[in-house]
Amino acid sequence: MRDEEMIAPEFGPGIAADMLQWYDRNARDLPWRIPPGDTQVPDPYRVWLSEVMLQQTTVAAVKDYFHRFTARWPTVADLAAAEDGAVMGEWAGLGYYARARNLLKCARVVAQEHNGQFPDSYDGLLTLPGIGPYTAAAISAIAFDRPETVLDGNVERVMARFHNIHTPLPAAKPKLHDCATKQTPQQRPGDYAQAVMDLGATICTPKSPACGICPLREPCAARQAGTASELPKKTPKKPKPTRRGIIYLARRSDGAWLLERRPDKGLLGGMLGWPGSDWGEVAVEAPPLNADWVTLPAEVRHTFTHFHLILTVRYAQVGNETTPNQGAFATAADFRPSDLPTVMRKAFDLWHGA
Results as ranks from 00 to 15, higher is better:
Arg243Thr: 06
Cys204Asp: 07
Asn320Ala: 01
Gly200Glu: 05
Val300Asn: 11
Gly269Trp: 08
Pro215Ala: 09
Glu321Phe: 00
Ile34His: 03
Arg161Gln: 08
Ala8Ser: 09
Ala193Trp: 04
Asp3Ile: 01
Thr57His: 10
Pro44Thr: 11
Ala82Lys: 10
Thr58Cys: 06
Arg46Gly: 07
Ile15His: 02
Gly270Lys: 10
Glu4Pro: 05
Glu148Leu: 00
Gly89Ala: 11
Thr322Trp: 00
Leu259Val: 11
Pro9Met: 02
Pro189His: 10
Asp178Val: 04
Ile203Val: 15
Arg99Ile: 05
Ala92Lys: 06
Gln40Phe: 01
Ala8His: 04
Ala180Gln: 12
Val59Leu: 06
Leu309Cys: 02
Lys182Ala: 14
Ala138Gly: 06
Leu340Glu: 02
Tyr192Pro: 01
Cys220Lys: 13
Arg188Asn: 07
Asn164Lys: 02
Leu272Asp: 14
Gly153Gln: 07
Asp78Val: 07
Gly269Pro: 11
Ala171Val: 11
Val87Thr: 08
Lys265Cys: 11
Glu156Tyr: 12
Thr331His: 00
Glu4Phe: 10
Ala225Met: 00
Met88Lys: 11
Leu249Asn: 03
Gly132Phe: 00
Pro206Phe: 01
Ile247Gln: 05
Lys265Ala: 15
Arg345Ala: 15
Pro170Gln: 07
Pro189Tyr: 06
Ser253Gln: 03
Leu126His: 03
Asp78Ile: 03
Pro129Asn: 04
Arg99Ser: 02
Asp178Tyr: 03
Gln224His: 15
Ala330Trp: 15
Lys63Ser: 14
Glu10Phe: 04
Cys211Ile: 08
Ala172Lys: 05
Trp274Ala: 08
Thr331Arg: 00
Gly116Ala: 09
Gln55Gly: 08
Lys237Arg: 13
Leu104Arg: 12
Arg262Gly: 09
Cys220Asp: 13
Arg28Ala: 12
Asn325Gly: 02
Thr127Cys: 04
Met19Thr: 01
Glu90Gly: 11
Val158Tyr: 04
Ile203Glu: 09
Ala286Ser: 13
Leu94Lys: 09
His114Gly: 12
Pro287Gln: 01
Phe329Leu: 11
Ser338Lys: 10
Pro189Lys: 11
Gly276Arg: 11
Phe118Ile: 03
Gly93Lys: 09
Ala16Gln: 15
Tyr45Val: 13
Gly95Arg: 13
Arg28Asp: 08
Val41Ala: 09
Val158Ser: 09
Ala60Lys: 15
Trp48Ser: 04
Pro263Tyr: 09
Asp191Ile: 02
Asp198Glu: 09
Gln117Tyr: 04
Trp32Asn: 07
Met6Ile: 02
Pro31Lys: 14
Leu176Gln: 10
Cys106Ser: 13
His302Lys: 07
Ala98Ile: 10
Glu260Leu: 06
Ala193Gly: 12
Asp178Ala: 15
Gly266Lys: 13
Pro74Val: 07
Ala82His: 08
Leu289Val: 07
Asn102Met: 07
Tyr122Gly: 00
